[in-house]
Write a protein that binds this DNA or RNA. Structure first.
Length: 587
RNA sequence: UGGGGAUUAGUGUAACGGUAGCACAACUGACUCUGACUCAGUUAGUCUAGGUUCGAAUCCUAGAUCCCCAGCCA
C-alpha cells in the first residue's frame, strides 16, 4: 500500500498562483507579522459540494504551504435557514477531505459566528454612537422601492435620526420589543453610491426564531456584510478568501472595520484598534454536467429526485464519498484545476480522471460479471474444478495473488459476445477464440438461443495448452482477454450503476430550468455475479471507509453503506476508460 | 443605461517588456493476459483595431464579448 501515501506536494511543482503570490508579497513586506491564517466559512444551510471542496483545499493548502493555520467557522447568522444536521455534515466532510481544523499543524479551530453576537452588538452600538449607523423603520418593500437606480440615489428618511434615539430603539429591538421586519439597523454610508451595497446597507434585522447554537438568546441577527469581516477580525484571519461575487462587497468589508477603528487607538475611549484582514476573491469551481447551487441541490433532495444529500449521483462531498471517491483524488483534482479570477467550467471528466488515477494505484482487482451469458466448455473434464491464480494488482507487485475457481460452466459478460461482430470486435463470436483472463483460451463452437433469438448459452472448447492464459506453443494469437466467473461458484451481489445526473453539458441552458435536463435513467440496479474472493474480502473490510476495488475491465466499485453482512452492494465509482465504446460511437 | 471584474489551442492554466509553455481532451503509433495502465508523437492559441518600443500576451488608447451587483440571503 505504499503507493497510497505518494501524494505530490502541491505547491512545489508549479509556479505560485495569484493568491500565493499575494501572500508571499505580504510575507515579504512583513504584514501580519509573518502569519498566514485562513478559514473556510460555510453557512450551515445545506451540504457541502465539490465547489466547496475547492475552497476548503485552497484555504487549507495555503495554511499548510506557509506554515499557517486554518479555521472552520460556521457563518450562522440566519436561523431561518440553518440546522444542526448541516453543521454536523460539514464538520464530517471537511475532516474527510483531510483538511483538519482541530488537529495537526494547521489546526486553527472550530468556530461559530453566533458566538460573536455579543461582541458584534457592542460594536454596533459604538457605530450608532459615532453617528455611523441608525435605526430605520422602512419595511423591506419600502427599502426596495426607494433603492433608486444606478444614476439616482436611494431615499432613507430615518438616516438623520439622532444617535440617542437610534440607540434606544436598537436596545428595544434587541430586547424583543418589535416584530420581524418592523425595523432594521442600517449603516450610514452613501445613498448615491453606484455600488448598491453601499447605499446604507442593513446591519441587523429582527428574526424571532430559534437558532441551532444560541437558541432563543437573540432576536436580532447580523447581516453577512456587517458580520463577516468582524468574524475574520476576531479570529485573526490574515487572508479572507471568498468567491468573485463578493468583490462588490469588499468596500463594505473594509468600511465596517475602518468605522470601528475610527477614533480607536492606544489611549482611546473606544479601545484599541481591531485587526483588519484582507479580503481576496477567486473564481468558484464550475463543472460540466453538474449543478452546484445549494438551492437546487436542496430541491433535488426535497422533491426526492435523488435519495438524499449523499446520493452517489449528487455532486456533494458526501455523495462523492458514498460513491467511493477517495479524498486524495478530490484533493488532486482541486490542485489540478488551478486558482484564478477567471470564470470557467471544468470538464467533469477531469474529476473522473483524478479518481481513476488514484484508484488504479490502490484498488485490488477482482472479476465480476454484470450481465451474465453462460458458457459451457464441452471438452472440460466433467466435475473438475481448478483453482486459478490471479494477480491482485498489477500496479502493486506486493499485492500478491488469489485463487479463483474455474469449471466447465462459466459466466461471461454479454457485451463480450457478438453473433455477427463488426470488423474491429476482438472478443467472442462464433468460431472465434479469446483468452479468459489468467485461465485458458476458449473457442466458441455454437450458440444456443431463446425463442426470441437471443443467445442464452455458448458452447465452447478450451485448449489445455493455454493453461494460465499463456500463449500456446503453436504460435496462435488472440486479440482479446475477457473476464469470467465460474457459474456454480459465483456469488450474487447488488450493483448500482450511475450515469450523469444531467444530460446537458450546461444544465438549464436550453430552457432556463435545470430540471429539464435531468437524466431520467441515471441509476441502474443490477444483480451481478462475482468471484467468491470478493464477497469474502468485503466482509472483512473496515466499515468507516468503503472497500474500493476494480472489477477487471468494468471499472472501480465501492461498497455502499446499504450493504448487509453476506449481502454486499457495490456502487460503480467510475468506469475504466473504454476505447471500444468510443470506437462504436464513431460508427 | 451606472459600478465592479474577466478575456492565451476544444477545455483549463503558465509566461509579470525578450524563444508563447504545461495539463486534460482529440488524433497517430508502440507496449500489453484489463480495448485499462504506461510510453512516444501530431493537430491546435494571445478578443479586435490603433499606438509606444529594437522587441508587446504583457504598457497606452478606443472598441467587442462574457460574468457579478438594486434580499431585512450568504
Amino acid at each position: 500500500m505504499s503507493a497510497d501515501t505518494a501524494e505530490p506536494s502541491p505547491a512545489a511543482a508549479r509556479p505560485p498562483h495569484f493568491l500565493e503570490q499575494i501572500i508571499e508579497a505580504d510575507l515579504q513586506a512583513g504584514r501580519w507579522g509573518g502569519r498566514v491564517h485562513t478559514r473556510f466559512p460555510p453557512e450551515p444551510n445545506g451540504y457541502l459540494h465539490i465547489g466547496h471542496a475547492k475552497s476548503i483545499c485552497l484555504n487549507f493548502g495555503l495554511a499548510r504551504t506557509y506554515g499557517g493555520r486554518f479555521n472552520l467557522r460556521f457563518d450562522d447568522t440566519n436561523p431561518a435557514k440553518e440546522e444542526q444536521e448541516y453543521v454536523d455534515s460539514i464538520c464530517r466532510d471537511v475532516k474527510w477531505l483531510g483538511c483538519d481544523y482541530d488537529e495537526g499543524p494547521q489546526a486553527g479551530g472550530l468556530f461559530f459566528a453566533s458566538n460573536y453576537f455579543e461582541q458584534m452588538y457592542r460594536w454596533a452600538e459604538e457605530l450608532v454612537r459615532k453617528g455611523k449607523a441608525y435605526v430605520c423603520e422602512l419595511s423591506a418593500e419600502e427599502v426596495s422601492a426607494k433603492r433608486g437606480t444606478p444614476q439616482t440615489p436611494a431615499i432613507s428618511p430615518f438616516r438623520d435620526r439622532p444617535p440617542d434615539e437610534s440607540l434606544r430603539l436598537l436596545r428595544a429591538m434587541r430586547a424583543g420589543a418589535h416584530p420581524n421586519g418592523s425595523m432594521t439597523l442600517r449603516a450610514r454610508i452613501d445613498l448615491a453610491s453606484p455600488n448598491f451595497n453601499l447605499r446604507d446597507p442593513v446591519m441587523y434585522r429582527i428574526v424571532h426564531e430559534h437558532h441551532h447554537n444560541t437558541g432563543g438568546d437573540w432576536c436580532l441577527y447580523p447581516m453577512y456584510d456587517w458580520a463577516h469581516g468582524l468574524e475574520d477580525s476576531i479570529e485573526g484571519i490574515t487572508h479572507s478568501i471568498c468567491t468573485l461575487e463578493f468583490e462588490n462587497h469588499r468596500p463594505l468589508y473594509d468600511w465596517f472595520i475602518d468605522a470601528i477603528n475610527e477614533g480607536r487607538g492606544p489611549d482611546s475611549e473606544w479601545g484599541p484598534r481591531i485587526h483588519h484582514p484582507r479580503q481576496i476573491e477567486f473564481a468558484r469551481l464550475n463543472l460540466t454536467y453538474t449543478v452546484m447551487s445549494k438551492r437546487f441541490l436542496l430541491r433535488l433532495v426535497r422533491e426526492a429526485r435523488v435519495k438524499g444529500w449523499d446520493d452517489p449521483r449528487m455532486p456533494t462531498i458526501s455523495g462523492f464519498r458514498r460513491r467511493g471517491y477517495t479524498p486524495e483524488s478530490i484533493r488532486a483534482f482541486c490542485e489540478d484545476v488551478g486558482v484564478t479570477r477567471q470564470n470557467s467550467v471544468i470538464d467533469v471528466g477531469r474529476l473522473e480522471n483524478a479518481c481513476r488515477e488514484h484508484l488504479n494505484r490502490i484498488a485490488p482487482r477482482y472479476m465480476g460479471v454484470l450481465r451474465p451469458l453462460e458458457v459451457v466448455i464441452d471438452n472440460w473434464p466433467a466435475g473438475t474444478v481448478e483453482q486459478i491464480a490471479c494477480v491482485n494488482n498489477p500496479e502493486d507487485p506486493g499485492a500478491g495473488t488469489r485463487d479463483v475457481p474455474f469449471s466447465g460452466k462459466l459466466l461471461i459478460e454479454r457485451d463480450d459476445f457478438m453473433e455477427s461482430p463488426p470488423k474491429k470486435f476482438f472478443r467472442l463470436a462464433p468460431g472465434a477464440e479469446v483468452r479468459l483472463r489468467y485461465a485458458y483460451w476458449i473457442r466458441c463452437v455454437s450458440v444456443e438461443k431463446d425463442g426470441a433469438g437471443n443467445p442464452v448459452r455458448l458452447r465452447c472448447t478450451y485448449d489445455p495448452a493455454t493453461r494460465g492464459g499463456n500463449d500456446p506453443p503453436d504460435g496462435r494469437k488472440v486479440k482479446a482477454t475477457i473476464h469470467w466467473v465460474s457459474a456454480d461458484h459465483a456469488r450474487e451481489v447488488e450493483v448500482r450503476l450511475f450515469d450523469r445526473l444531467f444530460n446537458a453539458e450546461q444544465p438549464g441552458a436550453r430552457t432556463g430550468d435545470q430540471f429539464d435536463d435531468l437524466n431520467p435513467s441515471s441509476l441502474e440496479v443490477l444483480r451481478a455475479r462475482v468471484e467468491p474472493a470478493l464477497a469474502e474480502a468485503v466482509n472483512t473490510a473496515r466499515s468507516d471507509e468503503p472497500a474500493r476495488v476494480q472489477f477487471e475491465r468494468l471499472g472501480y466499485f465501492a461498497t455502499d453503506p446499504d450493504s448487509r453482512p453476506g449481502a454486499p452492494i457495490f456502487n460503480r465509482i467510475v468506469t475504466l476508460k473504454d476505447l471500444w465504446v468510443k470506437e462504436q460511437k464513431r460508427g
